[in-house]
């Protein structure tokens, strides 16, 4: 893992736009870390602020390609579209959680549930999109992601037949639209 990272790093460093990307990701990491420092410390002494600047500079210097590995301009629009997606996801979570509550408190629960593992393929390519899809599947009640591989294949444990049939369905369309992939 370390080897592939360093070679990737060197190839990106050689190009000219790679340097700009590096500086941008450095600045983003620095701002992110410093805001986190302010929120967590809550004090505004000159000594503490300068210590915060020093430590977030060091973190940003060493780990600038850890949080934002490859920046592209379309990530800005993805960032704003993500809020709309999160609102939809929370609505979906609450709606489906009541279904799970109904299952849990039902006296004859073992006749209602029908656990099964289903396999399906999606056409997602980016790692971030696959991660978002897997976490969304886990958060939506009735389904838990078992494995998700880099080709976009998913294995999902579903608790009853109704939630198993609802996959991939609407959530996949939403994720694909969020990350600009073709369905």
């Amino acid at each position: 893992m370390a080897d592939s990272d360093t070679t990737d790093f060197e190839t990106r460093e050689s190009s000219k736009s790679g340097v700009a990307k590096k500086i941008l990701s450095f600045l983003l990491t620095f701002v992110f870390m410093f805001v986190l420092w302010i929120v967590l410390s809550g004090k505004f002494d000159p000594l503490l602020i300068s210590l915060g600047i020093l430590s977030s500079f060091l973190v940003a210097w060493f780990f600038h390609d850890l949080i934002f590995p490859d920046l592209e301009f379309r990530y800005i629009s993805i960032f704003f579209r993500f809020f709309a997606y999160a609102a939809w996801l929370i609505k979906e979570i609450i709606k489906a959680n009541f279904h799970l509550m109904y299952l849990v408190f039902h006296p004859r629960m073992k006749e209602l549930i029908d656990p099964q593992i289903i396999v399906f393929e999606t056409s997602l390519k980016q790692e971030l999109a696959i991660t978002t899809m897997a976490n969304s599947i886990t958060l939506t009640p009735g389904t838990v992601t078992v494995t998700a591989d880099s080709d976009g294949g998913f294995r999902v444990h579903a608790i009853d037949r109704a939630s198993a049939e609802g996959l991939p369905g609407k959530m996949f369309e939403k994720v694909a639209k969020l990350f600009g992939e073709d369905i």
């Binding site: 959680n97 799970l100 509550m101 849990v104 073992k110 009640p141 009735g142 444990h157």
Partner: peptide
């Protein structure tokens, strides 16, 4: 309310995989 559902679900569900459903999601909400 949801924490109650999670706690009861952990007790009542028949196996390990289905116990994860209430534990992982009702507790999150």
């Amino acid at each position: 309310f949801f924490f109650t559902g999670g706690a009861v679900g952990i007790i009542r569900m028949p196996d390990f995989y289905s116990r994860l459903h209430p534990a992982g999601k009702l507790d999150t909400l």
